[in-house]
Amino acid sequence: MDENNPLVVFAAKTSSVRQILSLLKCIGFIPKAQVQISSEGVRVTVEDSRVMQAHAFLDKNLFSEYSFNSPKRNPLLNLAGHDAEDIEVDDEEDLDSTISFGISLSALLECLQIFGADSSFRERERWGQGGFSTMEHGGIPENQLAKPTGTCDFIYRGEGHTLDLILEEHEVSTSCQLTTYEFEPQGEIPLARDSLAQKIIMKADWLYDAIQELDGSSPDRLTMAVSPRHPFFSLSSAGPMGSTSVEFSNDRSLLETFQVPVAVQNTYKFGLIKHAARAMAIATKVSIRGDNLGVLSLQFMIDHDGKTSFVDFRYMPFENEDSDD
């Protein structure tokens, strides 16, 4: 491997670190993540117990500058720097326009928060100081303090290199070099989009409230039942402290979309559903889809300053309670 590969595979710049941070925090329940970079954006995936996956997609519109030069697309680079092994891998993988690697998500989150450390401190100080807002902050005028003006650069130089973050704000710059690990392909949990058994779109808040309600009895499993007739959509759980059930009626104001041809019931591990709680709390809408094998997809739409991002959670059902049997 050419250690001094001068060609930057991926470079992006953003001034909206907060958005990226809040998206990544949604899937921050597992310390290690897989990253896939394409010309459309950055996809970060985590997996728990091989029965759930969560993806956060950082669309390129979250970045003010975004450039991706796939090393696999660039024949010159293949000739110059890559050995035969790399090319072989290319042939095996169909995804010739993405690059992938593993990364410590917990470290990435902490790094992105170093950035916020400054502005949050200043905010605190401003509130705390009350009338003394004229206090000097190293000579930076007050109006500039109001909004963070910092930027964050992401740079990846290719396989075997670190993912570099350069956070710049006022007089401080922080550089983070995150070790990248070999990509561990995880085989996506497939959702059969052409044989959907249910599709429900509702406010994410309400799903959050329902899950919170059920969480009170510290259950082990969550049963999701949908039906074209009453009770339409119900979430229920049974745990050592008793059982709870939340039902949603099919009201346009409640369930924006409700497409359920036949009654279906599936059971999922409650703890894994709870992983999505953070996304439920900050998202505006959630699309709950399930296919005929019981695979559940929770897709959250998260709005930030007019930009919409998506975080997607996929779940495998418990097999013994599969309603298709």
């Binding site: 190293g138 710059s173 983070c176 070099q177």
Partner: peptide, 10 residues
Amino acid sequence: AVKVESLWKG
């Protein structure tokens, strides 16, 4: 997992 460095100037 990571190398981090913060630099203050001025």
